[in-house]
Design a protein around this nucleic acid. Structure first.
Lengths: 248, 248
DNA sequence: TAGATTGTTAATCGATTAACAATC
DNA sequence: TAGATTGTTAATCGATTAACAATC
């Protein structure tokens, strides 16, 4: 546990650790006590050697995990991966941007499960400031620094339009944020101590689109399809605000 | 344009192509006509040689791009990358899961800009079916196949809870979907002709958390912080349904 | 002990990037 | 032509995975 590991851990390894953690939580809830790397491969699709290698980066600071001939204890591995990822204790998170995406994130129940505590929401829109978003009240983004002096959050989610993203980033850095999850489609300029990860739905969809075969599917023009929902209705109010996450 | 390229293109290259496309659209809107790989590096952070290499995968089928000594024509490159990614013409997309995340995605204006047309929304909740979500009417997920016979969408966004994800995936595959953007935290089992990409906010946040230094920031306990929004209010209705994306 | 599965090594595979001849 | 920047090669770097001795 002594600070971070000095051996540099590949980012893909960290991403997979989060996957393992999620998987182990599920196993634990099914009362499964022991798991082998072969079984991890079967259920997550991640190569068994990869799994063992991923864990090996942390043996120096966290000790070994598995027992040869036996496997891994689910609860123990779960706890240790949480410690590695620093989500064994509460990790506070602030959100800037109380739009649709921001709302979805505040309402996302998985966060609390993983001890990622979304503790404040900020926006610059005076029509929104002071109004509630789930169990939080939307605050003025200009008071970010002041608010975070007490909150001490070091992670921020940036869900504002591209045009505002760099400005808000500067505020976040000034407020003591060290890690940013950026949803705006541009490269944020940050000091070297700040770590940024970008998420882009368009990028994801573009990669999917590339992999489609070239042939055109049979498509009727939209205006000839006698199905609901193709005439503009524009009624957002009634469409949201029910249970967190969908439930199809 | 003749079908796909046979040389296998690395996925990271495809991801970057989407980034270049986004960047080129911005440049075009600023009336910039020509760009060099060095300038791309300066503004996107992606290495100039990387950029040229990425494009080189497509020279066989799309011809060369740049002029030595000059650079790249912004409009032309933009058009060709759109063609590579098969978003030069409308690409239809269906969404399953009309929860918070689904709502945010339907309202996301960037989709249409990139010719990704979200044409239908499905859910299994009878409280939602028939109600409008933005300009679409939520349909019964059981009618997915029937609906897609006319729509011909090949891309789907899966924003349902993990417990339902595999079932819905089977419906999607049966309905002729070839590519799935999966937000549920599990490995979907799909036939080999179906391409899946997973998005996990928890994974992203966990990777950020790992990179934080070990020292505890000064944090007041939440119940001692005299700031708005920390008493449960629970009022989702009033928090959503305004402009797409946030605007802090 | 025999069987199973780990941790680790070494081989393979793939992606990034520096360097430069070709060319506008 | 001289200067700039491309497309491409080759070197480097890093991640994945097969194989196996160690060990429970």
């Amino acid at each position: 546990m002594t600070a971070s590991n000095n051996a540099k851990v590949p980012v893909p390894t960290l991403e997979r650790l989060a996957t393992y953690l999620r998987f182990l939580i599920d196993l634990d809830q099914s009362n499964i006590e022991t798991i082998s790397s072969a079984e991890v491969e079967r259920q997550t699709g991640i190569n068994a050697a990869q799994f063992r290698k991923d864990l090996s980066y942390f043996f120096a600071s966290f000790g070994e995990f598995g027992k040869p001939g036996v496997g891994y204890n689910v609860k123990d591995l779960q706890n240790r991966i949480a410690r590695i990822l620093k989500i064994d204790n509460e990790q506070r998170v602030v959100l800037v941007g109380a739009g649709n995406l921001g709302s979805a994130l505040v309402g996302y129940p998985g966060l609390k499960e993983h001890r990622l505590n979304l503790v404040a929401v900020f926006d610059n829109n005076y029509g929104k400031i002071g109004r509630p978003l789930w169990n939080l009240e939307i605050q003025d983004v200009m008071r970010l620094k002041e608010a975070n002096q007490r909150l001490g959050a070091r992670i921020a989610i940036l869900a504002v339009p591209a045009i505002a993203a760099q400005q808000v980033t500067d505020l976040l850095v000034d407020a003591g944020i060290h890690a940013i999850l950026n949803f705006a489609p541009l490269m944020l300029r940050v000091p070297s101590h700040v770590f940024v990860r970008n998420v882009s739905f368009l990028q994801e969809l573009a990669v999917l689109s590339y992999h489609l075969s070239a042939e055109e599917p049979s498509q009727l023009p939209l205006d000839q399809i006698p199905l609901p929902g193709l005439e503009p209705v524009i009624d957002a109010e009634s469409a949201v605000g029910d249970t967190p996450a969908a439930d199809a």
